[in-house]
């Protein structure tokens, strides 16, 4: 029988090559320009303020630019193969729906890792450059904090990519972008949704917002944690583990449904 890991790996490498050769890495250049400009603008502030503002905005920029890359590349993931009819080549070979989805997802995630970690490294470099004490006094500790924060950003983007991949199996890229961006945004306002629901006197409305709150991962907590992490605050590790498991389970669920849809799909 065929070697499944080899098939998945080949599909991943092909997707990674496609994204890199489609100049997806230009997103990093946008980020680099943004952070450098911000660093120069903040040059007039005191060292502590510069570092905090630059790190906060830099991290948010990493999440935003990485998110845009995840949404757009994920939304096109399956649709592009259908539109260009390259699926005829793939599914006339002994490839299953789940191998295809997993391969495409891993390839996109790999490319995203490259973009996100390059942005993280640039941010660390920019912070060091604009505040030389970072390098001399607590360089190792600071790099560790940045790395952990960037890992949390990457975790969130893995979820966004899985959502976009899921939608791309049954709808157009425009709709995928719309659905994924909306859910991504809602995920950041989870607690607020619950509060809105509580304000209503209609129990159905309250229940609807409650359901929405429970249906989506609490991305706002991930954002809060990565900020806390960067500023060296104590973290609730139990909650972090819970969020991590929740997001990973969510990704597995989305990819499983995407694989089932692909497996049962007809290619006209």
């Amino acid at each position: 029988m065929l070697d499944s890991p080899t098939v998945v790996l080949s599909l991943s490498i092909n997707t990674f090559r496609e994204l890199v050769r489609d100049r997806m890495l230009y997103a990093f250049v946008v980020f680099a320009v943004l952070v450098t400009a911000l660093g120069i603008l903040l040059g007039s502030l005191s060292a502590g303020q510069t570092m905090r503002t630059l790190s906060d905005i830099g991290l948010a920029g990493t999440a935003l630019i990485g998110g845009i890359v995840a949404v757009f590349s994920g939304a096109n993931l399956v649709y592009k193969e259908l539109e260009k009819k390259t699926v005829y080549i793939i599914f006339s070979k002994p490839v299953t729906g789940w191998q295809f989805i997993l391969g495409k997802y891993l390839g996109t995630s790999l490319c995203l890792a490259l973009v996100v970690f390059a942005m993280g490294a640039f941010l660390a470099g920019a912070l060091a450059l604009f505040n030389a004490t970072v390098l001399t006094e607590r360089a190792a500790g600071f790099l560790w904090l940045i790395s952990r924060s960037i890992l949390l950003v990457y975790l969130e983007l893995l979820f966004v990519t899985a959502m976009a991949t899921f939608f791309s199996t049954f709808t157009t890229p425009v709709m995928s972008v719309l659905f994924t961006s909306s859910l991504w945004l809602i995920g950041h306002f989870g607690q607020s949704l619950r509060d809105i629901g509580r304000l209503s006197e209609n129990p159905a409305v309250t229940q609807f917002f409650n359901m929405l709150y429970w249906m989506l991962p609490d991305l706002a907590s991930l954002t809060r944690f990565r900020g806390d992490l960067l500023h060296g605050q104590e973290l609730n590790m139990q909650l972090i583990w819970y969020l991590l498991c929740y997001v990973v389970a969510y990704i597995v669920l989305l990819l499983t449904v995407a694989a089932i849809i692909t497996e049962n799909r007809e290619f006209q």
């Binding site: 065929l2 098939v7 080949s10 496609e18 390259t86 080549i89 070979k93």
Partner: peptide, 20 residues
């Protein structure tokens, strides 16, 4: 229709890998 980002060699190698 093929993957226009790949070279002829890369494409055939990719297809071969799908057969394990």
């Amino acid at each position: 229709y093929f993957y226009s980002h790949l070279t002829a060699y890369e494409f055939l190698d990719f297809v071969g890998s799908l057969f394990g």
